[in-house]
């Protein structure tokens, strides 16, 4: 019997014994209802946040109108435009002031937590750990101490186990004074293109150099608004010593709404002993 025949037989034996629960459809409908309620709660919170922002802007404007001088506020941007209209024999000058609320954290900057989510981290190590586990998918990583770069940023080393290779997670305290992950790098996976902050389209071409088990580097293209990767695949770097890779990974922007979206590209390698994620490199990109 060939391996294919054995596999088919085993698959048939396994799947023929699996049946759906009689209440499965009702459970799906229940989950959909709960998801709808969650959306409603999110919309209410966003509305409340927007209302609070408007109050803050109005208060700031009143303060300025009171002649107390300019007030710097990270949450608001105020722009003024002067319009001159000329008619026969008359010149009228109007001043229009437009106030725009800017989100506290620029969604273009952090990979994790998502700027538009309510998840925040009070310390850099927690942010790095959550990133490695919840976003990248590491299992029980060893997360080291924060190493400060300046007063608001630094690095956190992450390893698959104590003797494993180090992935350096770059963290920074952003506008709301909580900690975010901006990217990650490891010596064994160097991504040359696309670079951090660049615009990408689908499919995306990746070049760089990697040292990986059997030369295989897993790639995930992620969008902030999608739970699952919008694209995934591998690039092949060749086995043995570090070798260059140049590959293309398919992804799908059709699932995203119109407009500008942000996301990330995560390259990871697996350990030779099991399928655990061994190390990873992650960059922030814009999806166009």
């Amino acid at each position: 019997m060939t391996p294919e025949d054995r596999l088919r037989e085993a698959i048939d034996a396994r799947t023929s014994g699996v049946e759906a629960s009689p209440d499965a459809l009702q459970r799906i409908e229940g989950k959909l209802a709960e998801a709808g309620r969650s959306d409603t709660r999110t919309r209410v919170l966003l509305a409340l946040g927007a209302a609070a922002a408007i109050v803050a802007v109005v208060a700031g404007a009143l303060s300025l109108a009171g002649g107390e001088g300019p007030v710097a506020d990270d949450d608001t941007t105020t722009t003024s435009a002067e319009t001159t209209t000329t008619t026969v024999g008359t010149t009228t000058t109007e001043t229009t002031t437009t106030t725009t609320f800017t989100p506290t954290v620029d969604p273009a900057v952090p990979i994790w937590p998502l700027a538009q989510s309510s998840q925040r981290f009070e310390d850099p190590v927690s942010a790095a750990r959550s990133f490695a586990v919840d976003f990248v998918g590491m299992i029980d990583p060893v997360v080291g101490a924060f190493q400060a770069g300046d007063t608001r940023s630094g690095e956190v080393p992450v390893q698959p186990r104590a003797s494993g290779p180090v992935t350096t997670v770059l963290v920074r305290q952003l506008e709301d004074d909580t900690w975010f992950v901006l990217g990650a790098a490891t010596d064994d996976i160097r991504l040359d293109t696309p670079a951090t902050g660049t615009d990408i389209d689908c499919p995306v071409r990746l070049t760089g150099e990697a040292l990986a088990f059997e030369g295989v580097v897993q790639v995930a293209v992620r969008a902030d608004q999608a739970d699952d990767p919008i694209g995934s695949g591998i690039v092949q770097a060749g086995g043995g010593p570090a070798a260059p890779f140049d590959g293309t990974v398919e992804c799908n922007l059709d699932l995203l709404d119109d407009g500008v979206h942000y996301g990330s590209i995560v390259l990871s390698t697996e350990g030779g002993e099991d399928s655990r994620i061994w190390q990873f490199t992650a960059v922030r990109v814009a999806l166009k």
Partner: peptide, 9 residues
């Protein structure tokens, strides 16, 4: 699920 599975670990 598999990546988070303690059983796999």
């Amino acid at each position: 699920h598999l990546r988070r599975s303690l059983v796999a670990r």
